[in-house]
């Protein structure tokens, strides 16, 4: 039993962190997801970790870092389908990244897909997450069957874990940037981080990160086990805690940054908006709490 990173995993984390720090600074992130970005990440192996011999725990570590850097794009979908693809679940009212991806998958009771070019509708000119373009769908059919309920379950489990890992990374980076701000921002002749009203908000960010990180690592390590008993419970817990960590830390970060937190210039809103978006992927915290209650009542 070991829920800490192995030496190899530390190297993996440091490697992806160095790559992202070098090539995915916020200036580039703010340009949004494009094919060059996909190719670069694909070449780095981000979407082929399992076929390259890594395990899901490794993939979670990589996606945690992608979340730290707020890298845009349907990265989780690309990793679980092996295609340049975005996905929808039961609701088809909005589709992400249609103009960049090859396919749009529907991961519901079964797995189906259609070429992205087959969807028509109205492109949102004001998407919630400015880095996630949205097509408001008028029509489109997920005609091609890709897999049965078993594949849908596998995609959902893996997608949930990677999404939670990404949310965890966002929650962590929101904490780092907010702590840095609280140490440097001076009011009443003191850094605002010296006031308990601020310190306690920041401590709560740490609490959410630590608990979510343990839950995400436990869920990812569980995916690597042949024994599936309790797996869906572990995964639901990870999604609840990481989703909340990202969203609540996003709101806390906005508050502590004061007026600057409400500006386009400061990165906080980009993280918070992505956190909200990811709450619509693989079950919101609320729906995952309902899943847990159903498991408890069964």
């Amino acid at each position: 039993m070991d829920l800490e990173l192995s030496d190899d995993q530390v190297s993996l984390r440091d490697g992806i962190q160095a790559l992202l720090a070098g090539r995915f600074d916020m200036e580039r992130v703010r340009t949004g997801f494009d094919r060059a970005m996909y190719d670069e990440l694909a070449e780095a192996g981000v979407f082929s970790l399992i076929s390259d011999g890594f395990v899901w725990a490794d993939a979670a570590i990589v996606f945690e870092q992608l979340g730290e850097f707020c890298v845009p794009g349907p990265l989780v979908t690309c990793a679980i389908t092996g295609e340049c693809a975005s996905h929808v679940e039961t609701s088809t009212v909005a589709i992400e990244h249609v103009s960049t991806v090859d396919y749009v998958y529907q991961i519901a009771d079964t797995v189906t897909r259609a070429p992205a070019s087959s969807f028509s509708g109205v492109a949102s000119d004001w998407p919630l997450d400015p880095l996630t373009p949205i097509l408001k769908v008028g029509s489109g059919v997920f005609g091609e069957s890709v897999g049965d309920a078993e594949l849908a379950q596998a995609f959902r489990r893996r997608g949930t874990v990677l999404t939670a890992a990404f949310q965890l990374g966002m929650a962590q980076r929101l904490t780092t940037m907010t702590v840095d701000y609280a140490k440097s921002r001076v009011q009443f002749d003191r850094p605002i981080g010296s006031f308990q009203a601020i310190k306690h908000l920041l401590a709560d960010m740490v609490v959410r990160n630590e608990v979510a990180r343990a839950a995400v690592y436990a869920a990812a390590a569980h995916l690597d086990e042949p024994d599936e008993s309790g797996l869906d419970r572990t995964i639901a817990v990870a999604k609840v805690l990481a989703g909340e960590a990202a969203v609540v830390n996003g709101k806390t970060a906005t508050q502590v940054h004061g007026g600057m937190g409400y500006t386009w210039e400061v990165d906080v809103h980009l993280y918070l908006k992505r956190a909200w978006l990811l709450e619509t992927h693989f079950g919101s915290a609320e729906s995952r709490c309902d899943d847990l209650a159903a498991i408890l009542s069964a």
Partner: peptide, 30 residues
């Protein structure tokens, strides 16, 4: 339904802390 949702939430908190406990022990072992 509201009580059950809140119960699921409490369960998530406890289960996350159980994982964090294991992670703490992992770190102590190292």
């Amino acid at each position: 339904a509201a009580h059950l949702r809140e119960l699921g939430h409490c369960y998530a908190a406890f289960d996350g802390l159980w994982s964090l406990t294991k992670r703490n022990v992992s770190q102590t072992s190292r």
